[in-house]
């Protein structure tokens, strides 16, 4: 780990801690089946190549209004973010990624099945990066009450807000090999940007997201929450 004073932290030595047995179960590949050996080879290749990474900034929350919040001098427009940060003095803008190494490795995969396997591996590597970052922050802050918002996950905070977010964390993104296209696609694709913050109430995007079919859903949708907690919708 290298720290870039004063505010940027780069996490480059993140282990790829994916359980092989669980991975096979996730992909519905039975031990001993014809595809098992093939998947084991792919998994071992990926395990060797994987270098998940993350970067975050320790940024002051310096101005708040009903619908906007300024972090490290960069203004974001989101009612939900503003409410979530109403008691916060510091926020932690971040980028996490599966890493360019896995992206490059997966580029030779062809066919729907192998591409899906590689995509799942990259998603799990991203999960390692996000999990490691969260654990690191919780330990550093001495608090388990860490919540996250991501631009583009909710209508209230659109994907275009990644641009100002890069205004804060762009240097860290560059160091871990993540770039943002003009149309707001993060590269490598299995990368995620957002803001971590301390919240005793707790927050997850899922509680405000109506999408039914989502393999990543962690909590149930609460339609009334927009009005009750955020006074909008």
């Amino acid at each position: 780990m290298t720290s870039n004073p004063p505010d940027l932290v780069i996490l480059e030595e993140i282990p790829f801690t994916v359980d092989e047995k669980g991975f096979f179960e996730l992909l519905k590949i039975r031990p001993g089946s014809r595809h098992a050996a093939e998947l084991a080879d792919i998994f071992n290749e990926a395990r060797t190549a994987a270098r998940p990474k993350a970067a975050f900034a320790v940024a002051p929350v310096d101005d708040k209004s009903d619908d906007t919040v300024s972090i490290a001098g960069v203004r974001f427009k989101s009612r939900i973010l503003a409410v979530n940060l109403k008691d916060a003095n510091v926020a932690y803008p971040f980028i996490a990624t599966c890493g360019q190494e896995l992206e490059k490795w997966s580029s030779h995969m062809s066919g729907t099945l192998h591409s899906f396997w590689a995509d799942t591996i990259k998603l799990l590597a991203l999960g390692c990066a996000m999990g490691h970052l969260e654990a690191y922050l919780k330990e550093r802050l001495g608090s388990a009450a860490l919540s996250t918002m991501n631009p583009g996950s909710l209508e209230d905070w659109p994907l275009t807000e990644q641009k100002p977010l890069f205004g804060i964390i762009g240097g860290g993104a560059e160091k871990i090999g993540v770039s943002l296209t003009e149309r707001m696609v993060l590269l490598p694709l299995k990368s995620v940007s957002g803001i971590h913050f301390i919240s005793e109430e707790g927050f997850t995007n899922c509680r405000l997201c109506p999408r039914q079919h989502c393999d990543l859903r962690r909590e149930a949708y609460e339609p009334a929450l927009y009005t009750v907690r955020y006074g909008c919708g």
Binding site: T112, S115, F116, D119, T181, R183, V185, L189
Partner: peptide
């Protein structure tokens, strides 16, 4: 502008 392909591939399959 978009380079995501897994969803499309699954529909294709």
């Amino acid at each position: 502008g978009d380079i995501h392909e897994i969803g499309k591939n699954i529909v294709g399959m």
